[in-house]
Write a protein that binds this DNA or RNA. Structure first.
Lengths: 189, 189, 189, 189
DNA sequence: TATGAATGAGGTTTCATTCAT
DNA sequence: AATGAATGAAACCTCATTCAT
């Protein structure tokens, strides 16, 4: 039997995405996770703590996934491209997790996440962009602006792909072309 | 005394942004709007109806604001630039409204907004992009992808400006440079 | 139909005395008071607020009852005796209220009652004792000690009468004799 | 390391007095006593059993303390005075225990204590008063009334001393004078 | 003797909504 | 158009208690 704590997390993800935070009673999570009502509150003191734990767990998973590409050997440009492409792929393969993060990001619960955790997770990634700017591979703009625009693009492409319904060949092509566009935007001129 | 209906809407915006949908009881909205509990429900049959009405009201305001630029005389490229720049300015001048829209977009309540209203509001804007593609001023990519990337950039810039704390001169400069970058990404090559 | 707020108070008194604070769910109070669950919380924000309101209401009633005797014309000694005797009578006629006050006094909820309300209610009564001491009718001891001992006696007699099961003639006799004893204790010597 | 059972009892006393019975979860007692949740229930089958055990333990301690004075050789009047004075001292030295007993006495849990245990503990004490009445040292009133008034006075003095904040010399004087007053009330006339 | 994860009944409270005025 | 007392379903959460280890 899977760990009950994990089971609760997995069920919560499914239900929160389907019905929203407010639309999902803790009792339903417990029921569908196959645990008692009180068990949920034994592991997570409040509903919000559960929501935050789920958020951090997903962010951690995503960060781990990207980390290898950011820290790999090779040209900065290659690593940069890999990050973009695999971020999009991860989002497509984990639509619920991707959606959950968006949903959480635009909710007042975001305030409950300590900011340092944030920065720490984004670090390897911010570092790479910083390096790219310094080495005159990327535009001479503030690191934060470049990061924001880069992120905006990852999100924009995912948004498009979700609603476009392409086959996997077309998807790959689109992702590559989108990256070329992003590169045109961010590369040093 | 301002119209009570307006007062309710304004108070709801403030509270929804501060505390979230679920974190804001209708009774609190009524209280802080200076009306009786029942008055709120006289004007809006349900809480969700209030939320949707608020959403539509803001979207309408934004659309009106942008419309003039989209439909203006002149080069497509100029109109395109104007849309970008004034969207960003509007967002900066109306942070609560901008945030509310994001929050609503990532909530299950979005489903309650008829899709045709959506398309209708975005039309002048989508049309312009479609025209730009056809006339080979913009990249030969699906209209929806171009739109998604364009929107992603508006959002990315706003995100950056919100946290960067620049003076208005620097802000203007940043917005213009960001537009140049967007243009490098989307222009026909 | 009686005021619902009153009805809730009366029902709460009965149930709290019968089953204790913790042994009485708010839902039971509402049910037996013939109001909806939410109505109770409309009038009293929390269960504890209800408990405190009940306490203050009873104390107020008792204070009013005694006030007339304390402020009456006539010898201090007569007024003093009247207070004692009518306090005991009131307790015997209102056993639930009397018990409720004791129960509340020995609970942590007492801390929720503002102290100034306390002093204000006891004032006419404390004043009389102070006057008695100054005029050398009562023992030359601190006002507070005399008050404490006087109160201890009221409580002691009530305790005894409750368990003794006397008829009303014997009761009257006992109360009078008990007062004589109290007087022997407190009178100036 | 102290006996865990003792540790639980001591912690329970502290917390029950501070927060009340209902305000003190067993889990908190276990936590602050430094034992596991289940350990508490290993030693005391239910929470109420713990409460009663604590009550009996304190009553036993108090009874032992007083017993020696009640059963000592010498004049009844001396023993009587000693009981009064040492009861007050014990209460002042053990304010939490004294308060706990009051709190318990005015709670529905009192019913769970077998009545014979009660009478047995009070016996040496009641006996002394009975003897005093028979020998015409005390007033010719029912034994129970005299006992009730005597107890009321112990409580009254403690109440006063708790709030008066006297130094130990003044305290001793007050206790002695209070006893003189009690004696004036109860002595045979 | 001791543990602590797991339980589930039940408690307090919230809150959108109604309706008589 | 406006009110606010009243509602009751349902939510979150607590907590005494159990039991396998």
């Amino acid at each position: 039997m899977v760990d009950k704590k994990e089971q609760i997390l997995a069920t919560a993800l499914r239900l929160f995405v389907a019905d929203g935070f407010h639309g999902t009673p803790t009792s339903k999570i417990a029921l569908e996770a196959g645990v008692a009502n009180g068990t949920l509150f034994y592991h997570y003191k409040t509903k919000e703590e559960l929501m935050v734990a789920l958020y951090n767990s997903i962010k951690g998973e995503l960060a781990n996934n990207i980390l290898s590409f950011a820290q790999a050997e090779g040209f900065i440009t290659t690593r940069f491209k890999n990050i973009f492409i695999h971020s999009v792929y991860w989002a497509l393969k984990n639509p619920e997790k991707f959606y959950y993060i968006q949903q959480f990001n635009f909710s007042p619960h975001l305030a409950k996440v300590p900011k340092d955790i944030f920065k720490q997770q984004a670090m390897p990634y911010t570092q790479l962009i910083g390096e790219g700017i310094k080495k005159k591979l990327l535009r001479q703009q503030p690191e934060e602006l470049v990061t924001a625009l880069f992120n905006g693009q990852v999100y924009g492409v995912c948004q498009y792909l979700k609603s476009a319904g392409l086959d996997s060949g077309e998807q790959e092509k689109t992702i590559n072309e989108a990256y070329d566009m992003v590169w045109d935007m961010l590369k040093y001129t």
